[in-house]
Computed example of a mutant assay.
Amino acid sequence: MASSLSEIDVKILNALQEDSRLTVQELADRVALSASSCWRRLRSLEETGVIRRYTALVDPKAAAVGECVFAHVTLERHSAETAAIFIEAVRKRAEVLECYAVSGDADYLLRVAVGEIADYNRFLEEFVFHLPFQVRIRSNFALKEIKYETALPLRATTR
């Protein structure tokens, strides 16, 4: 079940999505709370899992991993065991930034970050082609990034 978010929680989360390096005092000033009250709310958001972690956003091109590939993966055999093996294997691959079970023609959608096309080919050879079952994979290379956001569009869910 989703957590309830108050208006002040949303203000805190929006401020942190913009700049996660804010001190508690800076955050409190932005959302018009005392530092101790802000700290308590922040702690609650962390403990309830609303805030998963804090991180830095790295520019892929500057870090030489600027190629983005969307891989549509279809498992040839559908079973709980096959799915579990695939999911466990995907979680171990650093190149796979996101993996979703999806509806439609494919079973999974992966967002894969690599330095160049040859690195994606190596990913296929070392990972996909070594799975203990057959998969179909359809790859789409991103030509240009139009929009990339990490901030969720939050709204209060309680009054």
Rank of each mutant, 00 (worst) to 15 (best):
M1F: 12
A2L: 12
S3G: 12
S4R: 09
E7S: 05
D9G: 00
L13G: 03
N14T: 09
N14A: 02
L16R: 06
Q17W: 07
E18D: 05
T23V: 04
T23H: 03
T23D: 07
Q25F: 03
R30Q: 08
A32V: 04
A35E: 10
A35L: 07
S37Y: 05
C38L: 02
C38Y: 00
W39Q: 09
R41N: 01
R41Y: 06
L42F: 13
S44M: 14
E46K: 11
E47Q: 12
T48W: 11
R52V: 14
R53S: 15
T55E: 12
V58M: 10
V58R: 00
A63N: 04
A64M: 08
V65C: 11
E67K: 06
E67F: 06
C68K: 04
F70G: 09
E76N: 04
R77I: 01
R77D: 03
H78M: 08
A80P: 06
E81N: 04
A84Y: 08
F86K: 02
I87V: 13
E88M: 04
E88D: 14
E88R: 08
V96R: 04
E98M: 13
A101F: 04
A101H: 09
V102Y: 11
V102G: 06
V102C: 10
G104H: 11
Y108E: 01
Y108T: 06
L109E: 12
R111N: 07
V112N: 03
A113R: 05
V114M: 08
G115H: 04
E116C: 13
D119C: 07
Y120Q: 04
Y120V: 07
R122V: 15
L124P: 01
E125H: 12
E126H: 10
E126I: 14
F127C: 11
V128M: 15
V128G: 05
F129R: 08
F129P: 01
H130G: 02
P132Q: 15
V135N: 01
R136E: 14
I137Y: 03
I137L: 10
R138V: 15
R138N: 15
S139G: 11
F141E: 13
F141A: 15
A142E: 09
E145Y: 05
E145F: 10
I146Y: 09
I146M: 12
K147N: 06
K147P: 00
Y148D: 15
E149A: 09
T150E: 15
A151C: 02
L152I: 11
L154S: 07
R155S: 14
A156C: 03
T157M: 10
